[in-house]
Nucleic acid binder design. Structure first.
Lengths: 229, 229
DNA sequence: TGGACGCGATGCGTGTCCTCGTCGTCGAAG
DNA sequence: CTTCGACGACGAGGACACGCATCGCGTCCA
């Protein structure tokens, strides 16, 4: 999952970014003012935007309104100052999905971030099940036919992303965009390699391969596995 | 857990209810005035009541007093307006368990709500047990397989925090956040060091390590230890 | 004044990830 | 149907970052 943090207090932004990378394993980009934030947001490759209200150049509320007027429906979590000049109602009317006033609990933020991403993808439950595969996004565990499967962080992130988009073909490009932040320059077969490893682990004691390749288009999780193989 | 929200600002009540459902996964009922609130509260099926002071028909303080006079000991968290007409002392005397003045931090509310519920569940639940580890938060003692384990304050706090979040990956940052008031810039392996010591003590006369490392993500208490190691 | 505790630094071991190279396979065109 | 080109799979290896154990020092309290 890829997250944009728009926050001018560098210190806070860095901590936040680090926490989001470390815990849930998101790819995080940062913007220090509303202008840059808006530009980045416009790319539409984010699964969540965390937006401070008090920003240089363009304030958060304006950024949010602009986004919504351009039909950008990326979930937005607002960070408000303690003395909250903007009312809750104003925020929600502007199209905010959630808000948190500073100082906030990082764990709380992460929980909400995950919830918003889930909601944004049209899911409400933190446990996803496709065929006999079960992904628990709270525990970050994966089970196949009940057995726990141990995945590396990257493998897990790939699977988690795909599980959010059932029945949809996910291109390598899309995976790259959502798994890595914009500092990423290398172009290679990273995804293929990880998919390969992921497949191996998912096949450990099953006989059906749930990750389907669609040549030139991408990958897809197959929802309907044959009962008897 | 079932929570009653008595609040006449519908918008706020809805947000609150949504947050309580989404985050900690509570079942939430709402009442828009003191009268309905009191009726619902009387059913006694709630683990927590969140009560606004300024209410139509019957004000919050009265509702609270009525409840307590009927020996309803459900934990009550009071929401006070910023200009606070009611004093803290008055609230607590009336039997409030906690209070929060508007506008409040939703995360803060949730944290307090959880704490109240824990406390309300009361005397029976200050003891957490995961696998063969038992943490008594009242006595601040830790037992493993019945044997008391002597931990330093920091070690205890780490374990206590983790025990509150079973099966979930707790990142080092999260631990830092909760053990200290603020994060520091410089790289420090405090947590790693304490975890190391904690592990040693937990392993004193067992052979299973309950603290699991998830590289790059954090630590986790394993709930399922192998019976025979 | 001594001991316990917590913090910071260092060296080592290891898991994870990326890259490269080769082989296999799919698809389109003749 | 055959052939050719491009894409993808997958194994091996190296670089790197991460986590762990340990030690010494400062501090606080008994």
């Amino acid at each position: 999952m890829r997250v944009l943090v728009v926050e001018d207090e560098v210190r806070l932004a860095d901590n936040l970014a680090a926490a989001l990378r470390e815990g849930p394993g998101f790819a995080v980009d940062c913007a220090e003012d509303g202008e840059v934030g808006e530009q980045l947001a416009r790319q539409g490759c984010y699964d969540l935007i965390i937006l401070d209200l008090m920003l240089p150049k363009v304030d958060g509320l304006t950024v949010l309104r602009h986004m919504r007027s351009r039909d950008n429906s990326t979930p937005v979590l607002i960070l408000t100052a303690k003395d909250g000049t903007a009312s809750t109602i104003e925020l929600l009317n502007a199209g905010a999905d959630d808000y948190l006033s500073k100082p906030f609990d990082l764990g709380e933020l992460i929980a909400r971030a995950k919830a918003l991403i889930r909601r944004g993808k049209g899911a409400s439950h933190p446990v996803f099940a496709i065929a006999d595969i079960e992904v628990n996004t709270l525990e970050q565990t994966v089970r196949r036919a009940g057995r726990v499967i141990d995945l590396s962080p990257t493998e897990y992130r790939i699977l988690e992303y795909m599980v959010h988009r059932p029945r949809v073909i996910v291109s390598k490009r899309e995976l790259l965009e959502h798994l890595y932040d914009y500092n990423w320059e290398h172009h290679s077969n990273v995804i293929e390699a990880h998919i390969s490893n992921l497949r191996k682990k998912l096949m450990a004691d099953s006989d059906q391969q749930p990750v389907e390749t669609l040549r030139g288009r991408g990958y897809r999780l197959v929802a309907d596995l044959e009962g008897a193989g």
